[in-house]
């Protein structure tokens, strides 16, 4: 009797074990396989992302360099433009002064050789010419100021400091 009971018990255990082996283990194996596949898939995607990130990093570095280059070339263009503008204005100013001096000389000649000419009008003309001369000088100064300001402004268009540091400089 006792032996039968023990055998029954062993049979029941064997049945359970058979269930585990036939049903549970395959399920576990299947899950493991799925997880393994997913992991390798994720690893592949990760390496793709890493590659893309490296590319983006390189592009960003290139672009920053490009921006820097563009900024520098823009600055030099502005500088050249300012220099040529200044030179042009200087030339025009000198030419105008020469012409004013010549005109003045002619006016005084006219005054002497044609006493009938209205001297009042000539004096007014001379006054206007002097005013124009003054305006040109003022304009030159303003342009010089503006040039200095713009060159300086573009030099410090963007300055970024990204280190944590003490507010004490020296």
């Amino acid at each position: 009797m006792e032996l039968e009971k023990r055998l029954e018990k062993w049979d029941a255990l064997f049945e359970e074990l058979r269930k585990v082996v036939e049903e549970f283990l395959p399920t576990v194996e299947k899950s493991i396989k799925e997880v393994t596949n997913k992991v390798s898939e994720l690893e592949q995607r990760m390496s793709v992302f890493e590659k893309e990130l490296a590319d983006i990093r390189m592009q960003t570095t290139e672009k920053s360099q490009n921006v820097e280059d563009i900024k520098n070339s823009f600055l030099s263009v502005v500088e050249d433009l300012n220099n040529s503008l200044n030179a042009e204005i200087s030339n025009l100013r000198n030419e105008l002064y020469n012409q004013i001096d010549e005109l003045k000389k002619n006016i005084s000649d006219v005054g002497v050789s044609s006493p009938g000419v209205d001297l009042e009008d000539l004096k007014n003309l001379e006054k206007e010419i002097d005013e124009v001369r003054g305006l040109i000088v003022k304009l030159s100064k303003e342009l010089e100021q503006f040039r200095n300001q713009m060159v300086e402004k573009h030099r410090i268009i963007r300055e970024k400091k990204v280190e944590g540091k003490s507010p004490r400089i020296l």
Partner: peptide, 14 residues
């Protein structure tokens, strides 16, 4: 500024 330390700064002339 974070507790007496300058963490980040920017200057602009624009």
């Amino acid at each position: 500024v974070r507790r007496g330390e300058i963490v980040f700064s920017m200057v602009t002339g624009e």
